[in-house]
Design a binder for these strands. Structure first.
Lengths: 343, 343
DNA sequence: CTGAAAGCGCTAACAG
DNA sequence: CTGTTAGCGCTTTCAG
């Protein structure tokens, strides 16, 4: 059965070094009162014996785990991957470990992940693209500090300072707006939006698009299509709509979707951007490698992860959550929207 | 300073429920000796108070953490993302938490990650694409069980059962071979290989390619180019080599590289597959969405992660590491190699 | 400068 | 059926 992992303990080291456990502890933790020679000897014995401190015991007595929880919808998404990388990096720089859980856009799994963090006494938790309500999240991990990254629960839309949690969002609407302004400039007059999952950012991006259209006096030009997945049926439906309406430009919820749509359109003989312009959102690495290369809106994904850690640490140390922020985005024009002047 | 996370403890619950701590512990852990009504009351109080068991305390006394460590080169890579997803999923199914660390293909960080696992008393650890020697890894996390996934340290090349660690690899060579056989069939006669990082799989794939070429009596046809990155200089060099040699087919180390190369080639006016066939390796999601869609060799990435967990759990429970395995790969022919019969 | 003792939150004998 | 006791591995007063 379950082989117990008998490891070398502080006492083993103490015994071997002929000192008490306290001395070993102090020596290894750089207590100035321990003279250099004892410290060296203890250290020597410790490494010789292969001693590794037991984190569980440590956190228990220190009442601090130096652990952050990160809840992700799914690590397969390149966009999320970048956030995770930024988060993990920054955490490790500050000596924090991160424990991760995937929610797969499923409230149940989201709760389970938070539960996990609570059990592990995470001192702070970041929720990426979560759909649970803030109250629920807060309750689940109380009293950990929480920051919401790209929170998808509609209630997270407003900016919320003074709350026991922080929000990091991007200028989704501004991104949509920038996209439309660019497309107008290259001569597009009719637009369609391909929706993503029914979450906050889907709506915000669409609102930005609608706003820009309104400003240009093209308010009711915008068609909206349900987003497709890799499944052939949904793409076929989408393509048939495009073929029927023939908009000049197709604004997709995100890059992944845009690439799927572009592929489907090509299979049906539509040329991008000659017949139709396509844009994405996120600027995932592959957006720059598609053919045609994808015009998109870049999100500072890595920075978001980094910032999340910073906010959490600040909240942990100073006991005050920094104000929520909304990060700027950047329009990146590539081939998929380079139209010859359209009608 | 550091606000201590005062949480509700077992004793709080015990007090409030008017029983002893042991009773609460037993009730909450489903000990059959506790009668239904007490169990219910305890449970009620526990949830009302928002009690969450302290994992650190638990692991300490149980001498079992139910934690697995996963070391990844970098979560940004879609291929690795799938392995991670499979691993995490399977672990959570079996009630294990996973703690993850990124190595960024850097031995130092790899060691640090392993150290982290040791401190957290991970009961098993999986190393994905690691470059450290097995001995070092084993020493670093002893006595945890270890499995190497796609280990990139050359010494891992041979199949190794009866060892205190397991290896999960894929049929890299067979994949390379299949690719060549397919390319020969569509009329390619001259080949070039674009290398990845100098690790085991780069070599294995090339060996498979060379073997197939030898079998076809085309041994010395194979040119080898240094792999490019997104950086313009390296791609320019690569393109100039391709332009000079004009091979019929370009076999790239992996999909990511293939997409980069394809993009560079297109920028220089070369058409794929009309002028040159291109293939990748891995079958990342975007391989199916490129234009032209990429011919590649699919690896069972998710299964690898899942299998790693299974091997680890089996080693933990039965104290015997299952034999190493080498997973099959699958040739996926797409547009990038659909040549009209070449000369 | 160093050791002895107490205790972090929890579980597991061992009595009752 | 339930409470008391001891102790997981570590840090930290508090004495010496």
């Amino acid at each position: 059965m379950m082989a117990h992992l008998r490891r070398v303990t502080l006492h083993d080291v103490a015994q071997d070094a002929g000192v008490s456990a306290s001395t070993v502890s102090r020596a290894l933790n750089g207590d100035r009162r321990i003279p250099e020679n004892t410290r060296a000897r203890v250290e020597y014995v410790a490494t010789r014996l292969g001693y590794v401190p037991n984190q569980a015991a440590r956190s228990l007595v220190l009442r601090a785990t130096h652990t952050l929880g990160l809840l992700v919808p799914g690590i397969t998404d390149p966009m999320h991957g970048q956030v995770v990388a930024g988060f993990e990096n920054e955490a490790s720089v500050h000596g924090f470990s991160v424990i991760m859980a995937s929610s797969y856009d499923n409230p149940q799994r989201e709760s389970r992940g938070l539960q996990l963090f609570a059990r592990h006494q995470a001192e702070g938790v970041a929720v990426l693209g979560g759909i649970l309500e803030q109250r629920q999240v807060l309750a689940a991990v109380h009293p950990s500090r929480v920051v919401f990254l790209d929170g998808e629960n509609p209630a997270l839309a407003g900016d919320t300072s003074d709350l026991p949690f922080g929000c990091i969002r991007v200028e989704d609407a501004a991104g949509g707006q920038a996209l439309v302004e660019h497309l107008l400039q290259v001569g597009c007059r009719s637009f369609a939006y391909v929706e993503g999952p029914a979450v906050a950012s889907t709506i915000a991006r669409k609102q930005g698009i609608a706003r820009a259209l309104r400003a240009a006096g093209l308010d009711d030009t915008l068609k909206t299509y349900a987003g497709a997945s890799l499944d052939p049926v949904s793409t076929a439906t989408l393509v048939s709509h495009v073929l029927r309406d023939r908009p000049d430009a197709l604004l997709c919820y995100d890059d992944r979707l845009a690439l799927i749509v572009m592929d489907a359109l090509r299979a049906h003989g539509l040329r991008v951007p000659a017949d139709i312009a396509i844009t994405g959102f996120d600027d995932i690495p592959f957006a720059a490698l598609s053919n045609p290369r994808l015009t998109t809106v870049a999100q500072p994904a890595g920075d978001m992860g980094k910032l999340a850690v910073r906010m959490l640490l600040s909240a942990i140390q100073d006991d005050v959550m920094p104000p929520s922020v909304r990060l700027p985005v950047r329009l990146i024009v590539r081939e998929s929207s380079r139209r010859v002047q359209a009608a």
